[in-house]
Design a protein around this nucleic acid. Structure first.
Lengths: 210, 210
DNA sequence: GCAAAAGTGTTCTGGCTACACCCATGG
DNA sequence: CCATGGGTGTAGCCAGAACACTTTTGC
């Protein structure tokens, strides 16, 4: 069975065009901010998401017919919050699993897929997991997060070894209490860094011996 | 010694702001085109570059102070032409090696570096070389192109094997005439595809056994 | 003791690098 | 026949996947 998927925050439009359809949070670029600042501002204003763990630019969506006139050009971003974040969201706003999106407004479905693709790719070769995981977590929890985002099973054994070898994961020394049905207590880890870093640079055609 | 670097097409500004500095080709987005169409149109209009082998979006540059008022938001692109392309360029336009840029206008130096970084990364894990190489080429020629773009020496032996294993390179059967000082005639190759394809997907954390 | 959950040891594989060696041509 | 430029054979390395086995808990 496929693991459950990550979720996107969407708000339901109350007026035309596309009344009732679900849209990504966002808005106009201010005169004195760059696009990233604008994204952070809109998230903080419209939804209670002042603490976004990671934000990165996806791509520009500029099809002249992506929405009704007047023509709009959108710079799409991927923003991630940890699994234990629980922002207070307005009534018209809700989290939706990316593999079962409600009817989306404009090209926001396409944008969402682009975000998921980017996340999946970066899980492989960067430490981007820091933006999905709580501050402290067990390997099993992390495994569930990775499996959910990637859409396939992930081996806890290998996940731990890969991330440890890369210096991404640091043991805290403490352990979690076992569940009601027993089992060995899980060791707890945290990410060594909370900034995006490429941990597995493309090795192919690398410089000779240096 | 470092190999010679790839070149960027720049034009010299004739008026304020930044008179005399060198700028990337580009211009305003039209009302009925998307950003990629706009890039292709500007290249075709301003310089004789109707035949760009590959175009891809880099990123949006939107610092409110990236240029004088009025504020402009730029969507930067990477465009590649084969090494044997020789477009007729206007008088105010010239190719410059990326490792020795003349004084650049606005943030165009930064944009150029971003383009080079993107090219370097993609040389490792895609077939993007098709956009740099002539239709038919020897491994030595291709080696020079890769070394120049990557900024370090590249082994012809391994380059051939990597690209062949990935199915990117196809032998044509013919050979090139040796140079004046002799030497074995080089076998000639071409790229199997002229569309970007990821040839070395990130293997880490791939799905189990399937 | 037994089931459940977590963690370790070990082997195998495949892609890439490195390097020694072999091939074809001009003078 | 030798210098020059091309091409092949082969060994080693390393990251990751797979899987069997061990450890620590609740009941």
């Amino acid at each position: 069975m496929a693991p459950s998927s990550p979720e996107v925050l969407l708000w339901q439009r109350a007026r035309d065009p596309h009344t009732g359809r679900w849209a990504l949070p966002g808005g106009r670029l201010g005169a004195t901010e760059d696009v990233e600042a604008s994204v952070r501002r809109h998230l903080a204003e419209k939804v209670d998401l002042g603490e976004v763990a990671h934000v990165e630019q996806l791509s520009v969506f500029s099809d002249p017919h992506r929405g009704p006139a007047p023509r709009r050009v959108a710079t799409a971003f991927l923003g991630l919050v940890p699994s234990d974040a629980d922002p207070a969201v307005p009534d018209d706003t809700a989290w939706h699993p990316v593999d079962a999106l409600p009817p989306t407004a404009f090209d926001h479905g396409e944008i969402t897929r682009a975000g998921l693709d980017r996340l999946r790719a970066k899980l492989s070769y960067t430490n981007i997991g820091f933006a999905l995981a709580p501050e402290i977590f067990s390997i099993s929890e992390l495994r569930r997060l990775y499996a959910s985002a990637l859409g396939h099973r992930v081996s806890a054994t290998n996940l731990q070894r890969v991330l440890t070898r890369r210096g991404v994961l640091v043991p805290t020394g403490s352990t979690a209490a076992p569940g009601p049905s027993g089992g060995r207590p899980a060791a707890l880890f945290r990410f060594s860094e909370h900034r995006l870093r490429v941990t597995d640079p493309f090795a192919t055609l690398r410089p000779p011996d240096c």
